[in-house]
């Protein structure tokens, strides 16, 4: 393993800001993995650190297949993470809205440019991503429907679901989209959590990355083949919006199997505790996403359900 600085910048008073890369093996640029790009992505940082740890062990055991280079960038925004901010410490911009970056532009454009310069040209790219809404997901792989995506490849993670999403205008500046447009097969792994470390879901995520590497013959690491992934489009998910606001009293969570009419949650009056709304499942299926903040706004996504 070679540890190197990919981007370095002086700050007026803080310690230097450095983005580190961990390079394994030699040969064709086969796989790049990017971890936390937002300051609250602690789970993503943790998952990536476990990927690095396990890769070091495999390297010592001689289990990296020759002819492949793997690059891991566990963290691109610890200047924000260290001070509990989500976006860039100075101007609140989002590094993952700056790709492909611009080396003469604003600070976060420069960070994005430095990262993209390093991670482009790899055959496969994996981003450990988070969602902008608070909640828990079933661990899954996402690909953007750019016309370049290869869904068969996504099944090699052995995660229960592969979600294909049509990009919206704001998606054109995220890493995943730019990876694909520049010829990398790009995947985003959603492990379910963001600002807390959930060891179980993090393990599902990092094991899926090792499964992918094994299936792609990048490493020699026999393991359980995982599950046969079910491919979903955004439209295949049934969305339940809150019809009231108040205190959310959740009864079911991500991964639960449910039947039509099952009580999923209650929305309570924040003064009297009375039930304002009982949220019943309109379908048979599995909960894919569940809102998990204690308070809920009206017309917010509470659940997304895979219909069966």
């Amino acid at each position: 393993m070679k540890q190197e600085i990919i981007f370095r910048m002086k700050s007026p008073y803080r310690d230097d800001f450095k983005v580190w890369g961990f390079r394994f093996g030699e040969g064709k640029k086969t796989l790049a993995i990017v971890g936390a790009m937002r300051g609250d992505e602690v789970q993503q940082q943790f998952t990536c650190s476990q990927v690095v740890k396990n890769l070091m062990e495999l390297e010592d055991a001689g289990k990296l297949m020759p002819g492949h280079e793997i690059l891991v960038i566990p963290s691109a925004n610890h200047f924000s993470m260290n001070i509990n901010k989500r976006f860039w410490a100075m101007d609140n911009t989002d590094i993952n809205r700056m790709f492909p970056g611009y080396e003469k532009g604003e600070t976060t454009q420069r960070i994005a440019a430095a990262i993209f310069e390093q991670v482009r040209d790899y055959k496969y790219g994996i981003q450990l991503a988070s969602f902008y809404m608070p909640g828990e997901f079933i661990p899954h792989v996402r690909m953007m429907d750019t016309g370049y995506q290869n869904l068969k490849l996504a099944k090699n993670f052995g995660l229960p679901y592969v979600l294909v999403r049509k990009p919206r205008p704001y998606d054109t500046t995220v890493l995943n989209y730019n990876w694909q447009v520049f010829g990398t097969q790009a995947f985003s792994i959603y492990s379910g959590d963001t600002d807390i470390i959930n060891k179980d879901s993090a393990k599902i995520a990092w094991l899926s990355i090792f499964r992918f590497m094994h299936n792609m013959k990048i490493i020699d690491h026999n393991m359980h083949p995982g599950t046969c992934s079910y491919v979903l489009k955004d439209d295949d998910l049934e969305t339940i919006l809150s019809n009231q606001s108040g205190i959310l009293y959740s009864l079911r969570g991500a991964g639960d199997e449910i039947k039509t009419g099952d009580l999923l949650a209650k929305i309570l009056d924040p003064f009297t505790g009375e039930t304002r709304s009982s949220i019943l499942s309109p379908v048979d299926g599995t909960i894919f996403f569940a809102h998990h903040q204690p308070l809920i706004h009206q017309n917010t996504v509470m659940f997304r359900i895979v219909r069966f």
Binding site: Q244, G246, H297
Partner: peptide
């Protein structure tokens, strides 16, 4: 006009 969690509309 949308409900916020506690006693307020957006």
């Amino acid at each position: 006009s949308e409900g916020l969690p506690v006693d307020e509309q957006l």
